[in-house]
């Protein structure tokens, strides 16, 4: 039997480690919900966000806050630019899902190649050291980074919840997510909602890559792996359910953390993809909860059941 303190340690570290997964997942799930876009370009945004911070702190020797501000501004700028000059163009052309898929993925690759050219392929971190002070709380090691990660993630998620719940723009975003055409009829600008969801996602991405980059090395290829985890969590969590996708991200991170008790760490990646594959086999049209909850229409007498639409 494994020592409970060890289990608790794994649990805590797992939760702390899940922080950036959660942020990336929520960012991905939000754009998917509002824009109906599988936005793989977010991997590119992660790269931009990370290397902006890296450059401004390590090459330009700016103060930390300036580096973060620069990263936020640039990431949001690229997001808005992409929305206006690319995504919106494709949307107006009624491009197929494949085209969006190609564009977002290729954009991320473009960024990765550009970053490789500028910064090379050596793993880099935001600060020279990834160690952070550790205290022991009833036998469990808790680092400053852990606390920062959990605190930051919780704060951002609460802020997002409040924004969606209590502001007009948040409500508009939900309305557009639910029915874009209808919202426009009611005078809600879909474009504004799209850009807002993009900006929020960009903020979450900067926060996530900040956490990741203060703890582990980043290369231009890392973001693609990170986005895939977000895709898996989003799929299992449920389309259109941003916060439950975030919960699934925690669950997956914990599963990976605990799996070291049973399987070698090198097989953890396989575990993740296995879960994805089998989740889709069992729910070929998505997890049942994906369909937005609607009030069941009252049964009409003998509704016409026809294959024709």
């Amino acid at each position: 039997m494994t020592d409970p303190v060890i289990l608790l340690q794994i649990l805590w570290t797992g939760i702390a480690m899940s922080s950036y997964f959660v942020l990336f997942t929520v960012a991905f799930a939000l754009t998917l919900k509002v824009e109906k876009l599988w936005n793989f370009a977010q991997a590119g945004l992660m790269g931009i966000a990370f290397y902006t911070m890296f450059w401004s702190l390590n090459a330009a020797h700016w103060p930390t806050w300036a580096g973060i501000v620069a990263s936020v501004l640039l990431t949001i700028g690229v997001t808005i630019g992409m929305e206006i000059w690319a995504i919106d163009v494709l949307r107006r052309r009624h491009s197929s899902g494949l085209i969006f898929f190609i564009f977002t993925l290729i954009f991320s690759q473009f960024v990765a190649f550009l970053l490789t050219l500028l910064f090379g392929t050596e793993p880099e971190t935001i600060f020279p050291s990834v160690m952070s002070p550790v205290r022991i709380v009833s036998g469990i090691a808790v680092s400053d980074w852990d606390l920062q990660a959990v605190g930051l993630t919780a704060a951002l998620l609460i802020a997002l919840y409040l924004l969606i719940r209590f502001t007009r723009d948040g409500q508009f975003m939900l309305a557009v997510a639910d029915n874009e055409k209808l919202s426009e009829i009611y005078g809600i600008s879909a474009r504004r909602a799209y850009i807002l969801s993009g900006v929020i996602s960009a903020l979450l991405i900067v926060a996530g890559i900040w956490l990741y980059g203060t703890r582990a090395g980043v290369t231009p290829d890392v973001p693609v792996d990170l986005i895939l985890t977000a895709v898996i969590a989003t799929l299992i969590g449920g389309l259109g359910r941003v916060f439950s996708a975030g919960m699934v991200a925690v669950g997956l991170a914990l599963l990976q953390s605990f799996s070291i008790l049973f399987i070698a760490s090198k097989w953890q990646g396989l575990l993740l993809y296995g879960i994805l594959f089998f989740a889709l086999l069992v729910f070929p049209r998505g997890i049942p909860a994906w369909r937005p909850r609607r009030i069941q229409p009252a049964p009409k007498p003998a509704a016409p059941v026809q294959a024709e639409g």
Binding site: P301, A302, P304, V305, Q306, A307
Partner: peptide, 17 residues
């Protein structure tokens, strides 16, 4: 009348449902 199940009957026979 509409919705009486006529097309449904065809769908049942032809195997769509």
């Amino acid at each position: 009348p509409n919705g009486a199940g006529k097309t449904t009957l065809f769908n049942l026979i032809s195997g769509l449902i």
